[in-house]
Amino acid sequence: MKIDKKLIKELNDYLNEFNLTEIEYTNKDTKIKVSKSNISNSNKVLSVATSPSTSIKEIPKNETGTEVKSPIIGTAYHSPEPGAKKFSEVGKKIKKGETIMIVEAMKTMNHVPSTVDGIIKEICVEDGQPVEYGQTIIIVE
C-alpha cells in the first residue's frame, strides 16, 4: 500500500486550522487517522496510523438495558459545572427527557436527555472524556 503523504499533510493542516486533536479519513479499504496530543505544556506529538477499514473496534453489546447514545461529537460532562451535583449516577432513577449528561461541542453546552425511563445501570464515559456521535454514554435498565 502506498501512503499518500500529501493527504496526511492536508489532514494535519485541518487539525491546526480547526484546533482539533484528531481527524480520520476513510476511503474504500484505507483508513487514515491523524491525531496529536499534548505530552507537556507545549510539546505536541503527531501520530499517523493507517489500517484496513475491516479493523473497526466494536463495543461489546449488553444483554440487558437500553443504551443512550451521544447525539453529537464533543466532550462529555457529568455535571453542569465543576464541583456541582452530577446529572447521572449508577442506581439513580431517571425519566425520559431528563438530562443525563452535557456534551460540549464548539463551546456550546448541549444537554443530552434520557431516551427512556429507568434506573441507570452503567455510565460508559468519564467526566471530560471526548465522545463520538452514536457512542453509548449510559445504559438504563
Rank of each mutant, 00 (worst) to 15 (best):
Asp4Ser: 12
Lys5Gln: 10
Lys9Phe: 03
Lys9Thr: 03
Glu10Asn: 14
Glu10His: 13
Leu11Pro: 05
Tyr14Thr: 08
Leu15Lys: 13
Leu15Glu: 09
Asn16Ile: 13
Asn16Gly: 04
Phe18Trp: 06
Phe18Ser: 01
Leu20Glu: 03
Thr21Pro: 00
Thr21Met: 02
Glu22Asp: 11
Ile23Lys: 08
Ile23Met: 11
Tyr25Arg: 03
Thr26Cys: 10
Thr26Gln: 14
Asn27Tyr: 09
Lys28Gln: 10
Asp29Ser: 14
Lys31Val: 03
Ile32Asp: 04
Lys33Gln: 12
Lys33Met: 14
Val34Leu: 07
Val34Pro: 02
Ser35Ile: 02
Lys36Gln: 12
Ser37Pro: 03
Asn41Gln: 13
Ser42Asn: 15
Asn43Phe: 04
Val45Asn: 11
Val48Lys: 09
Ala49Gly: 08
Ser51Ala: 14
Pro52Gly: 14
Ser53Lys: 09
Ser53Val: 15
Ser53Phe: 05
Thr54Asp: 09
Ser55Ala: 12
Ser55Trp: 09
Ser55Ile: 12
Ser55Cys: 04
Ile56Gln: 14
Ile56Arg: 15
Lys57Ile: 15
Glu58Ser: 04
Glu63Leu: 13
Thr64Trp: 06
Thr64Gln: 12
Thr66Phe: 10
Thr66Asp: 10
Glu67Trp: 01
Val68Asp: 02
Lys69Gly: 11
Lys69Asp: 00
Ser70Thr: 00
Ser70Met: 09
Ser70Leu: 09
Ile72Gly: 05
Ile73Val: 15
Gly74Pro: 07
Gly74Asp: 00
Thr75Gly: 07
Ala76Trp: 00
Tyr77Arg: 02
His78Gln: 05
Glu81Ile: 06
Glu81Ala: 13
Pro82Ile: 07
Gly83Ala: 04
Ala84Gly: 03
Ala84Met: 12
Ala84Gln: 13
Ala84Glu: 03
Lys85Val: 14
Lys86His: 10
Lys86Gln: 12
Ser88Asn: 06
Val90Leu: 08
Gly91Lys: 10
Ile94Trp: 09
Ile94Leu: 10
Lys95Tyr: 05
Lys95Ser: 14
Lys96Asp: 00
Lys96Tyr: 00
Thr99Lys: 12
Val103Tyr: 07
Val103Asp: 04
Val103Gln: 08
Glu104Cys: 11
Ala105Lys: 08
Ala105His: 10
Lys107Met: 13
Lys107Val: 12
Lys107Glu: 07
Thr108Leu: 15
Thr108Phe: 11
Met109Trp: 08
Asn110Glu: 11
Val112Asp: 08
Pro113Ser: 09
Val116Asn: 13
Val116Glu: 13
Asp117Gly: 06
Asp117Cys: 12
Asp117Lys: 11
Asp117Met: 10
Gly118Gln: 01
Gly118Leu: 05
Ile120Thr: 07
Lys121Glu: 12
Val125Asn: 01
Asp127Val: 03
Gly128Ala: 04
Gly128Leu: 02
Gly128Glu: 06
Gln129Val: 10
Gln129Trp: 01
Pro130Met: 04
Val131Gln: 01
Glu132Gly: 03
Glu132Tyr: 02
Tyr133Glu: 11
Tyr133Asp: 09
Gly134Leu: 05
Gln135Phe: 02
Gln135Ile: 05
Thr136His: 01
Ile137Leu: 01
Ile138Pro: 04
Ile139Thr: 04
Val140Phe: 07
Val140Trp: 04
